[in-house]
Design a binder for these strands. Structure first.
Lengths: 256, 256
DNA sequence: GTATTGACTG
DNA sequence: CAGTCAATAC
């Protein structure tokens, strides 16, 4: 099976690109973030008419998550356990025994900003969500835009990013703490030394020959799935189009 | 020769469509209105690289006129004679003995609005411009978005449009008064009974089988040119595209 | 409905 | 740079 995460930065703006990606790559699961649209305006019919299942939760202008799949989910939940549940940032679907949690982790704005403390807390609450329902033996994918670069290899000029909300030591520590639940970072698992990014800030001029970006999007898997993983990668193509996106799809292939 | 008028509603948005129209139809003169761009940002290089001459005068967001031609104009003027000259609404070019005046006549907003009085005045000032320089014997085209439908046949449900700034009896009278300078409406000359429109309001759902629109764009010619006119028409195609335009090119063919 | 701007966000 | 919104115009 193929599972993908893609921060589409407005599903309405990126709809054609997403539909083409589905058609070309035929994934089993596509996790979307930053759909930026209320549920009434989500273009569900376009997915359904093309033969895909889709569940989603959004709000006006900001956030918004969705899971597109070939097979229908058996159960779907939105948000964390306690208020604020942040439904437009988290969707959890079950497909038989397989669970998929798709998150759009708060960016954090600034190290001093209250949203950064909220981000740290958010990751802890997500870990609690996992611990309450699953064990490391559960076949579980955690996918999404996690707004954290794990290691120096995951960001350009890491030494200059130590005060950045996506690379500060405290956020990396918080991320590692959730990973200790039992997750394997499938991209890094298959490419231990590959410097490749899933996010390119629009404000940094894009140069394909000298890429400056971040790997902040992940497909993470518990041991039963990680053991069956056969490959992973990032599709750079959407960054290089006439109407480019800042994030790129990151996928994993798993013999499941 | 082929001469065309097209309100492009933003030359930057419509650039590809305009270049394709030039390539496909090879007109001698193309008059554009509502280019909606200041001169510094007008995409003149695109026209020149494709082998066309272009003169233009625009402003930010509103109005803006241009004349595209295969041969270079010998002289070019912008605006009416007195202030406000409204340069982004009027360009006059001479090609040898042939004169072309391209206007974007004020829409008028509302019968009660001061812009409607300004519109009536504007047509009178334009007539004075013609009278000062030309006679009915001058080979002269007056083209553009004139924001007036002449006759009942030129608008859908005319009886409901009598209070509209583009069909009120006073504006039609003002228009006829300018036409008395000696102009022939080339489209109507060749198609005395054809109900065809050059403008379709974006807010009215477009139904190709039941068109509801306006003929407010014109190619008008003085007698020496009208006598040589061999055909005229409206190209509906641009209204039916993925990125449709509200106006359609209206052209005339003249043995000149 | 489809353009424009200007302020806001990441 | 590329999304969002709320005005404004036609």
């Amino acid at each position: 099976m193929k599972i993908v995460t893609f921060n589409c930065n407005s599903i309405r703006t990126r709809l054609e690109a997403v539909m083409r990606w589905l058609e070309d790559h035929q994934p089993d699961i596509l996790c979307l973030q930053e759909t930026k649209v209320v549920d009434e305006l989500f273009p569900a019919d376009v997915f359904r008419e093309a033969g895909w299942q889709v569940v989603f939760r959004g709000e006006k202008s900001y956030n918004g998550v969705a899971i597109v799949s070939r097979e229908a989910a058996d159960e779907v939940w939105f948000g964390l356990d306690e208020e604020p549940k942040d439904e437009p940032r988290m969707v959890h679907a079950r497909f038989g025994k397989l669970h998929v949690v798709n998150t759009y982790v708060p960016q954090g704005r600034d190290i001093e900003h209250e949203m950064y403390a909220y981000k740290l807390e958010w990751l802890a609450r997500l870990k609690a969500y996992f611990q309450k329902r699953f064990t490391a033996k559960t076949p579980l994918f955690w996918c999404g835009d996690l707004n954290v670069a794990r290691h120096p290899i995951d960001v350009t000029n890491p030494k200059t990013k130590l005060d950045h909300v996506c690379y500060h030591p405290t956020i990396r520590e918080a991320f590692e703490d959730v990973l200790e639940f039992g997750f394997t970072d499938l991209f890094r698992h298959h490419h231990p030394d590959l410097e490749d990014y899933s996010f390119y800030d629009y404000r940094v001029p894009f140069d394909p020959a000298n890429k400056r970006g971040w790997r902040i999007d992940y497909v993470l898997a518990t041991p039963p799935l990680a053991a069956k993983s056969v490959g992973a990668g990032i599709d750079i193509e959407p960054r290089a189009r006439p109407k480019p996106s800042d994030h790129c799809p990151l996928f994993a292939d798993v013999d499941w």
